[in-house]
Write a protein that binds this DNA or RNA. Structure first.
Lengths: 132, 132
DNA sequence: TCTTGATCCTGTAGTAACTACAGGGGCTAC
DNA sequence: GTAGCCCCTGTAGTTACTACAGGATCAAGA
């Protein structure tokens, strides 16, 4: 199932130009070309691109995405390095999860207290501004 | 406790120039100025700025942050509107939480299976590429 | 009192991560 | 054979910052 650029982008949920951009900066490998010069992608490209798109939506920078990809691609030699990095990433992710839980709680609370004419005060801003 | 721009940025955890940028695009209100023309911020500015920084780190665009702020600032008239918006945001947040949980699980699994010389294969990319 | 250092001001230019467009070519289908 | 859709390349524009230049303010020390 070789995919062309447009179809790859569509399935990964990203813009068609983004594919070319990631190729240019080395985040996606240059794919083989078919006879007519069109880029020809495989499942593994789709997998990788979808991961990148999702990680970006979760607030990771492209540099952080690069680090994660290198981690799973096996760029690090020793187990200690891998563990260190994996756990550091996991901690960062936990922080994000906590923040999101707080946001969600605040929004649901607001929605629940919304009845009739009364629009309640939503504490989401105050809650998420605490320096934890 | 009036704060100047540098101290506000430092406490909120963002760059000093970002403050001016948010002011320019209308995300932060223009603060009063002291005698010498310096910007003079209050607690509420710090609260707002910290919220923005955190929301950005969680992958929300500035436009989405604007929407969240309008929601809590009371820009929407009816309760139905507020509920609709709040729940939509909460759903989006739940999706992010799910993705982060999967990433975290994959990373911890990888770290746990790391022993001695063996560096295991990490399924984080494959897992997060599933279109759920 | 003078100067050094830190901070502020404004305007503008540079960077990261896309996104859009112009000009041209390759298929397929009526 | 031409209309419509997709692809190619190069380049320019957008979003969200971030850095820098040139100058003013102000507290503290020599």
């Amino acid at each position: 199932m070789p995919l062309r650029r447009g179809e790859l982008a569509r399935r990964a949920g990203c813009n068609i130009e983004t594919v070319r951009y990631y190729e240019r900066i080395g985040l996606l490998p240059n794919p083989p070309r078919s006879e007519n010069g069109f880029r020809s992608y495989e499942e593994r490209h789709l997998t990788r691109l979808t991961f990148i798109r999702r990680a970006r939506e979760l607030g990771f920078t492209l540099e952080e995405v690069q680090n994660l990809l290198r981690l799973v691609d096996g760029g690090h030699s020793t187990c200690a390095q891998v563990q260190e990095l994996a756990l550091r990433h996991a901690d960062e992710i936990q922080r994000k999860i906590n923040d999101l839980h707080q946001m969600q709680h605040a929004l649901k609370e607001m929605s629940a207290q919304c009845s009739g004419e009364e629009v309640p005060k939503c504490p989401i801003v105050e809650i998420l501004s605490e320096t934890s």
